[in-house]
Design a protein around this nucleic acid. Structure first.
Lengths: 233, 233
DNA sequence: CGTACTTTCGGGACATGTCCCGAAACTATC
DNA sequence: GATAGTTTCGGGACATGTCCCGAAAGTACG
């Protein structure tokens, strides 16, 4: 019971007066700043809970008193450092507005390699923080302006969210795999070995798949998705 | 050099004669069968490299001689046990055919909770195995039949792939988070605290977000995506 | 000041993914 | 059969995410 994490939505150190007990020696902002320092110095891959605790000069378990788990740490970082985008001037046309907002979200997240590993729970809305919620607002508002119901508007946002998260995830993982010692994308001559009777189109593509799959697809697909969503609306 | 993993695309134990050196005591099929046994008995969460090695009665490091890493293990499992779907009779209409194929892929993957954690590299094509490639074939063929170029057809497949992977990932992670002790989706009263001047539509949704976000969105979004993709041609 | 209560502190423990490296085992060739 | 060459074997090591639990350090109230 007393061991359970406080269910406070705000960080303990943010609470106003009236606290009881020993005050924490390290605040959440300090933790995030230290994490940022570590990342800037040694890169993402070197960020670990232990290292971070060492950087802060506290015990590992102590850090876990301020941050529920690594996922939360990454989410907080994302909110703090990536979520600070300001709404650009969005187009008036609902469809274009949605596309612009989604693109902005995509661009922001794409800069943070681990974003897709983490930003995928229901909680993303709460976690993105107000600083990036304008994206959600813009999509929902665009859909409603285009004549959709509230239900449909949220559905539309979620479809766009799936698509965006999926693209980022696939691209990030692919890049990582490519960097970390050529895990072969497809076995050599893979398409050459495809049975042309059962899979004629793929066989016809032959070895062009890797080349074709290397292009950027996000934007075109996003336009298609939005226009399809709105016209089904 | 002699320590490096062989770059053979086929499993070592599949190779024909002519081997040199001590033969492995455990073959890849045995490994997969044991993993399957372990999963059926103790569930996904309990599957670990160490447990698997113990189940096989071999050392952990020995297992790593047959399987590059855990990701490869999961991919092999996915190919072996989830990739065995047979192509259903697909509709003749290109658009409907694409939707049907994508839905089948989605359904297959959705049954495997860790699928999205793993099936996201460029290599998915090689890894899915011929047993599930009919899905890719159906989408590409549908797009080409609808008048798309090869390039566009592959782009379309990738858009659908992003969308599908994203949906599975988000849903799987959400379910996991929900199961593992209510990490609050959005802080209590979150939308109540939204500034109605800056985010009017979200504020208007009020507390309905969780309810609205709980519905199934995949199918509707997929239809929209496909029709958008095809009409953008 | 002293006592009761509440909270944090942090050493250490556990399970995990991964891999080094010397020993063992097998094949091919003489 | 001996020897060289090549491969696997597996104990142990390392770093990691997570957490238990006794000790320490604060606050509130008398």
């Amino acid at each position: 019971m007393s061991r359970k994490y406080a269910d406070e939505s705000a960080s303990p150190t943010d609470l106003p007066g009236g606290r009881v007990g020993r005050p924490p020696v390290t605040s959440r902002p300090e933790i995030l700043a230290a994490a940022r320092r570590l990342i800037d110095r040694d890169g993402w891959d070197k960020l670990s809970v232990r290292r971070l605790a060492a950087e802060l000069g506290i015990g590992t378990a102590t850090l876990y008193r301020q941050v529920r788990d690594k996922e939360e740490l990454l989410l907080l970082l994302l909110t703090e450092y990536a979520g600070r985008t300001r709404p650009p001037s969005l187009p008036a046309d609902p469809s274009e507005r949605i596309v612009a907002a989604a693109s902005a979200l995509h661009e922001t997240l794409a800069d943070w390699p681990w974003a897709a590993e983490v930003l995928t729970t229901d909680g993303f809305v709460g976690v993105l923080g107000e600083s990036a919620l304008w994206t959600v607002e813009a999509v929902v508002a665009g859909a409603i302006d285009a004549g959709c119901t509230d239900e449909r508007a949220v559905e539309i946002f979620r479809s766009i969210w799936y698509y965006t998260v999926g693209e980022i995830l696939v691209r990030a993982r692919s890049a990582k795999a490519r960097a970390a010692g050529t895990r072969p994308a497809a076995p050599d001559g893979f398409f050459g070995r495809i049975d042309p009777d059962r899979l004629p189109r793929l066989a016809a593509l032959g070895d062009r798949w890797p080349e074709l799959a290397a292009r950027d697809t996000y934007t075109a697909g996003l336009h298609a998705l939005v226009s399809g969503l709105l016209s089904a609306g």
